[in-house]
Design a protein around this nucleic acid. Structure first.
Length: 193
DNA sequence: TGGTTGATTTGCT
DNA sequence: GCAAATCAACCAC
């Protein structure tokens, strides 16, 4: 089921850790695809690596919108990345979803990604967006009642603190030393170890 | 208004 | 290991 607004209206690191194990679901006419979130990164206020660092712009405006909505952006002209907006409206904080373990609609994901290897379907921010068919028109939409949703699994497995690895973020040049990346320990679908 | 830049992926050396 | 692909947004002039 969809998560309550209060889930997102907490400090971003807490939300990031609690998103691990949740499902990211995309429902559309073509079919439904979904995956379990196994890797995330937090982007905070005052964080030089965050898109919100220099204030609100046309591109990052969704990051300053209400918590529980999506911030979707395009990178390198060809890849799309998905964020979960957190904290309070105007904070400019979000969690980047970096990897999924494919759960629903594997055939559709394989067709979109052009590969059969389950380990390559969604093990990266650009890959998972492509696998789920996420496009820029989902930018700013609600993750609680829109076509793209975050849901709690039917039987949430118990997640202990020692099951989560905390380390530095991937692919950034600024604030590269901050330990704001989180992933499920030992999970084979994370983007890199 | 023009030059620069990525929260990436892929394929080739 | 490294470079290309590819473009909208951003920022300095």
């Amino acid at each position: 089921m969809a998560l309550p607004a209060a889930f997102y209206e907490r400090d971003t690191v807490t939300v990031a850790k609690n998103l691990l194990g949740c499902l990211l679901v995309h429902c559309e006419e073509t079919g439904t695809t979904a995956g379990r979130i196994v890797e995330v990164e937090a982007y905070l206020r005052g964080d030089p690596a965050a898109h919100s660092y220099r204030g609100e712009t046309k591109r990052n405006s969704a990051m300053f919108g209400p918590a529980g909505h999506a911030y979707v952006y395009r990178i390198y002209g060809l890849h799309t990345c998905v964020n979960v907006v957190t904290e309070t409206e105007g904070a400019g904080e979000a969690v980047l979803v970096r990897a999924l373990e494919p759960v629903v609609g594997l055939d559709l994901m394989q067709a979109r990604r052009g590969t059969d290897d389950p380990l390559s379907l969604a093990s990266g921010p650009g890959k998972l967006a492509q696998a789920l068919g996420i496009t820029m028109d989902l930018n700013g939409t609600s993750l609680r009642d829109g076509p793209l949703q975050v849901r709690s699994p039917a039987n949430p497995p118990e997640l202990r603190p020692e099951d989560i690895v905390q380390t530095t973020r991937v692919g950034i040049t600024k604030a590269a030393d901050l330990p704001l990346r989180f992933y499920l320990k030992g999970n084979r679908y994370v983007s890199r170890r």
